[in-house]
Design a binder for these strands. Structure first.
Lengths: 205, 205
DNA sequence: GACATAATTCATCATGTGTTGAATATTGCC
DNA sequence: GGCAATATTCAACACATGATGAATTATGTC
């Protein structure tokens, strides 16, 4: 027994969940503040854990970030969901899938963390760039290779989805933030579809 | 004369440009790092000025931010440029105008600063939300009020432009980052146009 | 039970943060 | 020239940051 205020030292009995608690807390903080603004101490406090535990388990802040922001969905699965099925409904499927990703908390966290961090941190921007380039484009573009400028089109498409995500979930402009999933699918789906339909190339320089 | 290393104290002769130097440096730092990650000391160093000068001239960091990130273009002018002219070319005009804004350095700075800051800072997010809601929608939506869901459409439109800006200028994914202005206008313009053309409302629930 | 290994707390370090106040020099007005 | 106002530097404060090392307690293995 330790009558004084501080907690007792030493290892806790039982099978501790500290490591996982830290990961959960880290995702929360990185999600809300981005890499630079999230602090080791705030993460530790959120996990109700001593800050030193973070270094004990993960070494340093950067390694913790890499461990926490491990995008918890398989890009291949997403890409397959989007690209399989009727081609003329691909736009709607893309919007619906993308919205679905944001609505699931355990996926939205890392995504937000990555987005927020990418805005101010070079390493995180590189991660996001790589993620967009490799995971998304590497899988979706091949399905569209009959179009001219397939890469550019795919990126324009993704840029729309990301912009919508930011305005809806981060900046929270109305009425975008409160619009229903169906509304957005109906509105944005056809527009996304536009990118993968072979419209007239206008003036091919 | 002061033989020692430090600079001489006291006021400098001549009409100093310190205040403006600070503003320029502040825009640079806020632009590159966002509000939270930019530091008073780094701004001072960039302006080649003592950190105390910042508080002397601006009081504190937040007031400096407000003074520095004073969006240097008139939203009314932009809106007029976009909304005047042939309606069926509005999409292309919007894309071209938006790209033009980003290409001018003295405009791109504050915009980037606002965007970066909005990702991690509530006050900045509120500023951006207000900016989007009031400046853009307040002026563009009235010109589109014959469309259903004019507000939502306008925001979807803006979200695409913002997403493109982020992917092109911040994350710098290729080939988006290196695409020419004309390429982007040709590709994205028609899609933006889609939002302001009265397509079939699909299924009005 | 001895003992290596792992988990946990605490104190502390070096550095960086925004901010303040005093000291000093210049300008501009009377 | 006298003197208030302004501009500039320096030193420091109070606090937050990431990180480290020692001390302490539990677990698991032999």
């Amino acid at each position: 027994m330790n009558a004084k205020g501080g907690k007792v030292r030493g290892r806790r009995p039982g099978n501790g969940s500290t490591r996982d608690d830290i990961l959960v807390a880290a995702r929360g903080e990185f999600e809300e503040k981005g890499y630079d603004s999230a602090t080791v101490r705030a993460i530790a406090a959120r996990a109700e854990v001593d800050p030193a535990m973070i270094h004990h388990f993960f070494g340093n802040k950067e390694k913790l970030f890499l461990a926490a922001v491990d995008v918890p969905f398989d890009p291949a699965t997403i890409a397959e969901t989007v690209t399989s099925g009727r081609r003329d409904q691909l736009g709607e499927r893309a919007v619906r899938t993308f919205l679905g990703v944001w609505e699931h908390q355990h996926v939205r966290g890392p995504l937000l963390a990555l987005l927020r961090s990418a805005m101010t941190n070079r390493a995180a921007a590189a991660m996001l760039r790589q993620f967009v380039t490799r995971a998304l484009l590497g899988r979706v573009v091949p399905a569209l290779d009959d179009l001219p400028d397939a890469e550019l089109r795919a990126e324009a498409l993704v840029s729309h989805l990301i912009g919508m995500g930011i305005l809806r979930y981060v900046v929270q402009v109305e009425p975008l933030a409160s619009a229903s999933e169906d509304e957005l699918v109906a509105l944005i789906g056809p527009v996304i579809q536009h990118y993968i339909s072979d419209v007239e190339p206008s003036d091919g320089s």
